[in-house]
């Protein structure tokens, strides 16, 4: 993290402000943890421990599938959108991609020159976006021997968030230099950029139609950008004192959930749902502080951890 935790990865998916939650699984938290990464099919969960070890758990069984020891210092993890692959980024800049079903041998290579803070798969399941700390993004094709297909530089700093459009044709990256840039994934040419942000952005989310992108970060507000021009479409009020570290469109397609974290640790995390049209907000009602989120079979699944127990719940 960036300085503290890889907050751009803290939450990448949806949470729901509505309805009751139904526990899917409860398990013992294997370590003091910052955040978890849930696989898209809901069968696996990566727990990122504060000591930079990682534990991969089976959600249905609650048992440990794999432990990456603290000596390896794993800093980032991501599942491909089809759930077939798990990528893990390490301290020294290496990246490992493993088959979640055990159907292919693992590949490990030097994905960047420095600690890997960010990983994101393109929807094709063959291309991995790798963000080393304070370095240019490297885009790798790993369908065969890993091959570097693009290097996407910043004025300074590294990537703090990356998100592919639903059709996979655009990639948007938020940089430590505070710019938000769009790339054509066929040519890896930059198509547009927005340099109006004074502060860094940590969360990006395309709208379902792929025409707009929600941006959230240290300014504690949602900014909506046009995906074709990168120009600002609208900006919602700020919820000061914390950062947006995760955001997602909800199923109604006009609301967005945001998760706020004070990276300095002065304020507790909280979640807010915003109506994008009216700019009105409501705090997530049940007081749960989500530590992961994913859409699983069309339902919203969230994790929460109380220090000892990890709960995965489904929100209707």
């Amino acid at each position: 993290m960036r300085s503290l935790v890889p907050i751009a990865l803290l939450l990448s998916c949806a949470i729901s402000a509505v309805a009751a939650s139904k526990p899917i699984a409860k398990m013992q938290l294997p370590c003091p943890a910052y955040y978890q990464t849930l696989s898209p099919d809901g069968t696996q969960l990566v727990v990122s421990c504060r000591d930079m070890s990682m534990v991969v758990l089976s959600v249905p069984e609650g048992k440990t599938l794999r432990t990456i020891p603290v000596e390896s210092k794993a800093y980032s993890a991501a599942y491909s959108s089809d759930g077939k692959w798990l990528a893990i980024g390490y301290q020294g800049g290496s990246v490992e991609v493993t088959s979640t079903k055990g159907t292919a041998s693992a590949q490990r290579w030097q994905g960047g020159p420095r600690r890997i803070d960010l990983l994101s798969f393109l929807p094709d399941g063959k291309t991995l976006v790798v963000g080393p700390s304070d370095e240019a993004v490297r885009v790798w094709s790993f369908s065969e021997t890993p091959r570097l297909v693009a290097t996407l530089p910043f004025e300074f700093g590294g990537a703090s968030a990356a998100e592919a459009s639903p059709d996979g044709k655009l990639l948007v990256i938020a940089g430590g230099d505070t710019a938000v840039r769009f790339y054509d994934t066929a040519t890896w040419q930059k198509t547009s950029e927005n340099r109006d942000f004074l502060l860094e952005s940590f969360a990006l989310q395309f709208t379902p139609d792929g025409k707009q992108v929600l941006v959230g970060g240290a300014d504690a507000r949602i900014t909506v950008l046009d995906a074709a021009t990168a120009k600002q479409v609208k900006q919602l009020p700020a919820d000061g004192g914390s950062y947006i570290v995760g955001l997602a469109m909800l199923g109604d397609k006009h609301s967005a959930a945001t998760v706020y974290l004070d990276d300095a640790g002065h304020k507790p995390p909280h979640a807010v749902v915003w109506d994008l049209a009216s700019g009105k907000s409501s705090t997530l009602g049940d007081g749960v502080v989500p530590t992961c989120g994913e859409k699983v079979a069309g339902k919203l699944w969230m994790c929460s951890a109380d220090g000892k127990t990890l709960t995965v719940s489904q929100y209707d």
Partner: peptide, 12 residues
């Protein structure tokens, strides 16, 4: 030596 940018940089 490098030591990371952190999330608190503000431009301008």
């Amino acid at each position: 030596p490098h030591s990371e940018l952190g999330p608190f940089f503000k431009r301008d």
